[in-house]
Each structure stands twice: as structure tokens, then as C-alpha cells.
Simulated scan of single mutants.
Amino acid sequence: MLIRSKSVNPLKDWQVNRDEIRFLGKDLQRPECILTEPDGTVWSADARGGVIKMKHDGMQIIINPSILNDESEKLGNTNVLSLENDNARYISAIGSLPNGLCFDKNGDIIIANWGTNNIEKMTREGRMTTILTEIDGKTLGKTNFPLRDTKGRIWFTVTTCTEPWSDQINTRAMDGYIVLMDEKGARIVADGFCGTNEIRFDDKEEWLYVVESTAWKISRLRVKENGDLYNRETYGPEKLGGFPDGFAFDAYGNLWITLIFTDELIVITPNGEVLTLLDDSNEVTKKRLFEAYENRCVTPDILGATQGTLCPWMASLSFGGKDLQTVYLGSLRGTRIPYFQSPVAGQKMIHWK
């Protein structure tokens, strides 16, 4: 990103105008992660096991995987979950639940599957393969988010090895980690995180930024040429005002962050100030959740009752549009994708360059 630290921050005294928010898509299921492309195509994860491909002209296509293995090829819908079974979908994480997405160097979609705990790859036509199920002889845990770097390597996060994952909110188990997949295979390059979630690089790939959702903070680590990580530190405040989930840099150097459950959109400016851009929280349910968090007694019922109306369980954000000034918001419980215009462009993702 191009940081203009000596100029006026375009987000200073700016907030999202709720009346200017528009929506893309319909009848979506768990559009947790959003990917955008320069031609205006928008992709989202989908709880039916694949992705949704959309454009602003109304085009919407669900791409469900065909499962490939050594013995057979199975076409069609897999692991379709009932909309009524919220506990299975959002807390117990039963079935195939594509979570984080990225494009590999060939344009195929890398999927961190929150339901199967695997890393998968799917072509844009829906041909699915499972590429990683374990590391060091152990199952992966709750795979969350993949990311490609300029060398074509795939990085991904595991939020927790705790089952059910929601127990980790109370235990604060430091069992999250980051894996790097390269020509040598897959290896853990950093561990000991509290609820590892999304990861992002700065433009030069000198730092890897890490969301620690249940520690309410952002960390970052220096990146060596071989992918080793070191010099871990907290970026911004020691503790944010809620559960960070997804994040993205803009061209000024602001780090935009979604706070899930309370459905807030904030930024950490280059000088470390925290600004609130959108607050769709409910004061009553937010207070109850935060009290339970402090007392380590969060329950699925408390989580399920805490959400906003615009983008319930706001989980991610992505910049898109021809000028990268359209912000799309992903969610776990929404059925469409809110979007609005930003006064500053976003950082170009690797597949835009």
C-alpha cells in the first residue's frame, strides 16, 4: 500500500452512511469471505460446499464441487445444510463450510473449510480436491483463512484445535497457528495464537499481519525470504473493543477491521488511532456478550443472540470496483453482501497485480 503519512487521512471524520449502503446477491448461505476481480466479478464462500459467483448486472451462479479421489468422481451438491439448523451451521460447524478463500497462481480457488477442517482446491468449474488434512501427523483443526504471496506460496491459519471451537472463547487456549505450503511441503511457521483468523501482508511482504480474534487484537511478524516468521509484536492497541475477524489495508495505510458478533467496522490508522466507521451493534446483546467474555462463560445461545441487522456476524471485508474504492462486507449469517463507497482505495490483492 502507498502510505501518505504526511497527508490528511481520508478516513478522519468520515463514517459509512447507512443510507448509501447497497446489497449484492440474494439467498446466499454464509458468505463469510469475499473475493473481487478487476472485471467486476465478486465471489463469496457458500455453505452448500462451494462458492457463489456474482456480478452487479444480476448474474449469480452457485458453483458446488465435484469431489475427486482415486476411485470415483461425484458430481453435484454436497453437504447441503438446513437454513433452520443454526446451531449445526454456526456453532457446531457440521458439514462442509467453506470459510476463507484465495486464488492460487492458476486462478483456482483455495478454500479453508471450517466444517471439514481441511484445505481444499476447487477449479472455477467446480472440480474439487482436498490438498491437506493433517500436519505433523495430526488433523489440522479449524482451518480458517488462506493467502497467496508473490512467490506463489500458500499460507493459511488454523484458529484453534479445540472442539467445539466456541469453547476456545472461554479457555483462550493459545493453540492457533499458521502454516506455509511451498515446494518443500507444508510446515507450521508460527504458533501460540489466541483464535488465529485472517492474515495479510504489507505490499513488500516484509510483515505478516495476524488477527487474534479471541484475544481481541492484531499481531504481526517479520517475514524471512524462506517464509520463516520472527519478531512477533502487537499492532495497534493491546486490546480492541471486540472480536476482530477480517481485515484489509487501504492505500493510505489504514487497517480496516470487522468486529464479528457486534457487527462493527473499525480502522487502525498508521499512527495507531482507532476509528469507528460503522456500528450496527445492539447495546443490550453486546453488553451481555462482553460480560460473558470477561467471565469466561460465553455460550452458543449468547453468541446466537448477538448480531446486527445490516451484515449479521460481520466477518470480512474486501475492496473492489474498478478503482478499488467499493467495500464489500462478508458475514456468517447474512443472505446478501452489503457494499458502499470508500473515500480511499484498498490495497491491491495479489490476484489484481
Rank of each mutant, 00 (worst) to 15 (best):
I111W: 02
P146K: 10
T130H: 02
I119C: 08
L147S: 02
N144H: 08
T123R: 08
N117W: 11
T116P: 07
R148N: 06
E183I: 04
K121I: 15
I154F: 08
A112Q: 06
T143W: 04
G176I: 07
C194D: 01
E125G: 07
T123E: 09
W114E: 12
N117H: 15
W114I: 01
S166P: 00
V189M: 09
V189R: 04
T116I: 03
G137M: 02
W165Q: 09
K138P: 00
T139K: 14
T162N: 05
W114L: 13
R187W: 06
K184L: 07
T150E: 13
I109M: 09
T130K: 10
T150I: 05
T162E: 15
A173C: 11
D149T: 06
N118A: 12
T116W: 03
T130Y: 02
W165F: 12
I131G: 03
K184I: 00
I119G: 07
I169P: 04
G152W: 05
R172P: 00
T139C: 01
M128C: 13
R187F: 05
T171H: 07
D182Q: 02
L147F: 06
A190V: 05
I154P: 02
R187T: 14
K142V: 12
T162W: 00
V158P: 03
T139H: 10
K138C: 10
T143A: 12
T130Q: 09
E163F: 11
D167F: 09
W155H: 02
I178W: 07
I111V: 15
W114G: 00
T171Y: 10
F145Q: 13
I188A: 08
L147V: 06
E120G: 04
A186E: 11
V158M: 04
C194L: 01
K121Q: 15
N144D: 15
S166M: 09
V189D: 04
I188P: 01
T130V: 15
S166N: 08
I110Y: 01
F156D: 07
Y177I: 08
K151T: 04
K121G: 00
D149K: 02
K142N: 14
L132R: 13
F156G: 10
W165C: 01
G152T: 11
G176W: 03
P146Y: 07
W165L: 13
L140H: 06
R172L: 15
Y177Q: 05
F145H: 14
A112Y: 03
T129F: 07
P164L: 02
Q168E: 14
Y177D: 03
F145G: 00
T133Y: 04
G185R: 05
N113P: 02
I178S: 08
